[in-house]
């Protein structure tokens, strides 16, 4: 267990993560504008993937409708920035708040469905919201509307400066999403959800209030998706129902990312998003085949190694790179005050 080789794989993995973070921090100095835009897309998609993983991988909410919150965020951002004339940064916060506000009634619908039906139920809700967005004539109805240049200029006079600002926004959001979700997963809520996923009786034993935890996770995800929607709008400079509420971009890709990377692990969405961008960069010109490839790959993953690429790597790497679960190492666990309440491994 404590072979030097095992130690080095963990150290190497963490080193790679740190290197990646370092590259992102010095990013604006290193990369050209198109590269920076690509990184912004990467970080936005990473946020959405982290949130989908939180719901499907931990809270048992397998939603196919999370793109609704990205769309709501996009429209709300547009509304607050253009119609209300708010500073774009404040408008972004308001976009998150609006998404959170919408999450309440949405929850009322989908939480009445058992998990097997919740997936399509959430999709119905997202479709409905997209169609309603297409009825808003102030937002250009079904064809959408472009952002006035004056709003964009508040982010910086020159395009280069603007793109850097947008990049930093997505960087900050991704950092916040990772850090806060990490803290959530290490809290009682996260431990309870993990325990429930791994062994329902164990979770019952530590008295997890399941419904409350699931509600918390659903509400948790909404503002992040909303703000991501706002940032995406800043990049695209346009809102339109099929693009802002894109099921392909914000749900289909995201599900493939999380499934292939490794559902129910913290590393999974990160690995998945990297792999997805590699596939997209190098295989985009094979058209429909890259979708088919992603579909086949994700089905194969579920049937062969449900823990995804990270599950495969984990056979070599002896512990999580980002330790969200409290279990090992054994010695530390014994010192934890509620060690006796922690779920016991299944026999």
């Amino acid at each position: 267990m404590f072979e030097p080789k095992a130690f080095w794989t963990v150290a190497m993995g963490r080193g790679l993560l740190a290197l990646g973070a370092a590259v992102l921090i010095v990013g604006p100095a290193l990369f050209s504008i198109p590269q920076l835009q690509l990184l912004t897309q990467f970080l936005s998609l990473l946020v959405i993937a982290i949130m989908w993983n939180l719901l499907a991988g931990y809270a048992d909410i397998v939603s196919i409708g999370q793109h609704a919150f990205v769309g709501i965020g996009a429209y709300a951002f547009y509304g607050f920035a253009v119609f209300a004339g708010l500073n774009p940064f404040i408008a972004l916060v308001m976009a998150g708040a609006t998404a959170l506000l919408f999450a309440l009634p949405v929850m009322l619908v989908i939480f009445r469905l058992r998990e097997a039906y919740l997936a399509v139920g959430s999709w119905v809700v997202a479709e409905t919201l997209m169609l309603i967005a297409g009825k808003l004539s102030a937002f250009g109805g079904g064809s959408g509307v472009s952002m006035p240049v004056s709003v964009v200029k508040e982010l910086g006079a020159q395009p280069a400066l603007r793109y850097e600002t947008i990049y930093w926004l997505s960087f900050a959001l991704a950092g916040l999403a990772l850090a806060s979700t990490f803290i959530l997963m290490r809290s009682r809520v996260g431990i309870g959800l993990t325990a429930m996923r791994d062994d329902e009786e164990g979770a019952g034993a530590i008295g997890v209030n399941l419904i409350r935890s699931r509600i918390l996770c659903f509400l948790w995800a909404a503002p992040f998706l909303g703000i991501a929607g706002g940032i995406i709008t800043l990049q695209k400079l346009r809102v339109a129902p099929p693009a802002s509420f894109s099921i392909t971009d914000w749900t289909v890709y995201v599900i493939f990312i999380v499934v292939i990377g490794g559902i129910g692990s913290f590393e999974g969405p990160i690995i998945g998003t990297i792999v997805f961008f590699l596939i997209r960069q190098y295989l985009a010109d094979i058209g429909v085949w890259h979708f088919i490839l992603l579909g086949v790959l994700s089905i194969a993953v579920i049937l062969v190694e449900p823990r995804g690429l990270w599950g495969l790597l984990r056979r070599i790497v002896p512990q999580d790179l980002i330790p969200v679960s409290h279990a090992p190492p054994r010695r530390r666990r014994a010192q934890t005050p509620d060690a006796d309440k922690a779920p016991s491994p299944t026999l």
């Binding site: 097997a116 429909v288 979708f291 579920i302």
Partner: peptide, 22 residues
């Protein structure tokens, strides 16, 4: 768990759509 079957049928859906498109 219902997660695997949801994801498998979801993947199949995308494969069929794009297969037909091709």
């Amino acid at each position: 768990s219902v997660l695997p079957i949801i994801l498998v049928t979801f993947g199949l859906s995308i494969i069929i759509q794009n297969g037909l498109l091709g």
